[in-house]
Amino acid sequence: MALTKAEMAEQLFDELGLNKREAKEMVEMFFEKIKGSLEEGGQVKLSGFGNFDLREKKQRPGRNPKTGEEIPISARRVVTFRPGQKLKARVEAYVGRE
């Protein structure tokens, strides 16, 4: 199972007593604001969780995996996530199922 927006909204309803519509809007807005900031070229720093950074990638050679044809991968701007210390420590403590 994966955590989704619906579950997050449900929790806001249960825990904070927002009504269902408000809870849904809140979750929507949270992610929309992050997307908007990144779109505008701003780094997003969420202390305790992590940072969303932007990186400029140069053009590099690529290949169509189906046809084997060589096609360059164009220069682009990408988002990277750097987890914060606190999140890293919490995740490290997870022993896994294997």
């Binding site: 199972m1 955590l3 989704t4 919490r90």
Partner: peptide, 24 residues
Amino acid sequence: AVKCILEQMSQALASGERIEIRGF
């Protein structure tokens, strides 16, 4: 609300659960 969302996300990852947000 923002803190609650982030806590849920951290908690999910800490327990080995994925997070899937369409479009994000």
